[in-house]
Structures are given as C-alpha cells and as structure tokens.
C-alpha cells in the first residue's frame, strides 16, 4: 500500500528531480569553489531546504558575523512560506506526525505539487504528500552534496536547464486556472506581482507583493463572497 503510494507520487516529482539536481549541483559547486567542505552544502540542504536562501547563505558565511542581519534577511527571503501555510491549513488537518515533516519540507515546489495534485481516491493523502516532500528533499540534498563533493571537476553545458522550474510553475498556474471557475485571484497574483516587480525591483519586491495581494483580497472579500452566494 505504502509502496504503491510512492509509485503514484513519484511521477509528480520528476520535473523537480531535474530542476533540483541541476540547482543543487550548482549550489554545491558554488560552496565548493567558495572554499567550503562538502559537509556544509550537505547539512544545509538537509536542514534548511530552501534554495534561494541557501545561495544567499553562502555570501553570509563569507561575510563578517552579523546574526541580526542574517535573521532578518532569512525572514524576508522566506516570508512567502507564510502564504503556503495559510493555504494548507485545511489540507494538513489530521495528518498526525506526518504534518510536522510536511510543514518542515514545504518549499515552493513541494507546496505547489501538494496543493494542486489530483491525488487518486484509493491512495492515502498523508502518505502521498509525505512522499512528494521526502523525494524533493532527497533530490535537493543529493544534488547539493554531490556538487559539494565533485563540483570543481564537473564540466558540461546545461545552460538553461533551470528553466524547468519556471515551466513547472507555469503548468501549475495553468492547472489551477483550468480548475477554478473565476480567475480574479490569478489575475491579482500576476498583476500585483508584476507591478511590484517594476516598482520595487527584483531584490525587494516580494514583501510589498505579499502585502498588496492580501490587501486586494481583503478589499474584494465582500463582492467575492456575495458572488459566491448568488452562484449557488
């Protein structure tokens, strides 16, 4: 039964395998050439499990010790996870001990798969999401460790393969789009993020984006809920 669930979950994670191995290798190589032992990417990929922060953490480790700055930076980079938690409150209900691991391992990709996947009826939801999380965690961990171990000896042309992540989010966006009746929220997500990106620039647009999305949704609550009632 559990093995069958693993087999059902695996195909969903194949694009992430490609993306995480590439990015994980790149991260391990980056740590390797920055003068760190492979133990660093190995441990960090295991206990942080958040790609963009781990790249920034390399810079932090090479700079003078600044704990407060590190903590604030971490919160700023990772704040989007708050949104994932809010979206998963219901789906993680009653998952028992698995819930803690599901929350621990909820990176962008894992959240997106676990939120949108059509989990077959005869498969245990908890185990399905557990395997998606664990497989992704393993891909990232193994990629980072291998990159840290043999990074400086690797030479191959994989320019552009990181686009696999963009393509995956486009597909997930479309899947969600095809499933929902009204697309107002999707428009808000695209529009607000694009405007904030233009206004605040690539390094500091995420926090304003999140605040703006929440504000717009709060303002639209009454009309949206009214529409829901009339549709029923």
């Amino acid at each position: 039964m559990i093995f069958r669930t693993l087999r059902k979950a695996f195909p969903y994670t194949i694009p992430i395998f490609a993306g995480f191995w590439f990015l994980g290798l790149a991260y391990g190589i980056y740590m390797n050439v920055s003068g760190f032992s492979f133990v660093y990417p190995m441990v960090m990929s295991l206990i942080i499990f958040g790609g963009s922060l781990e790249f920034v953490a390399v810079e932090m480790l090479l700079s003078p010790f600044a704990p407060v700055q590190v903590f604030i930076m971490t919160l700023l980079i990772q704040a989007r996870h708050l949104f994932y938690g809010l979206s998963m409150l219901d789906k993680f209900k009653g998952m028992g001990w698995k819930k803690y691991y599901l929350i621990f391992g909820m990176c962008d990709e894992t959240f997106s798969i676990n939120y949108t996947a059509d989990i077959p009826e005869d498969v245990d939801r908890g185990w399905f999401m557990f395997f998606v999380t664990a497989l992704n965690h393993f891909y990232w961990f193994s990629g980072a460790t291998i990159g840290g171990l043999i990074g400086s000896h690797l030479h191959f042309n994989t320019e552009g393969i990181s686009f696999v992540m963009t393509a995956m989010f486009v597909v997930i966006f479309l899947e969600q789009w095809l499933k929902e009746k009204r697309h107002i929220s999707a428009y808000i997500g695209l529009g607000v993020s694009a405007v904030c990106l233009i206004v605040f620039g690539p390094d500091s647009f995420m926090i304003p984006t999140m605040i703006a999305i929440l504000s717009v949704l709060a303002i639209l609550r009454k009309p949206l809920e009214k529409q829901e009632v009339t549709e029923k």
Partner: peptide, 16 residues
C-alpha cells in the same frame, strides 16, 4: 477566505 483565494494568486506570484 484568504486560504481559499490565496493559492491562485500565489501561483501567479511564483511565475513572476
């Protein structure tokens, strides 16, 4: 309400 409407916006945000 937020948990219900947020995901579509989040996927748009992730594409950007």
């Amino acid at each position: 309400y937020i948990g219900k409407y947020l995901p579509s916006a989040v996927f748009g945000m992730l594409v950007i």
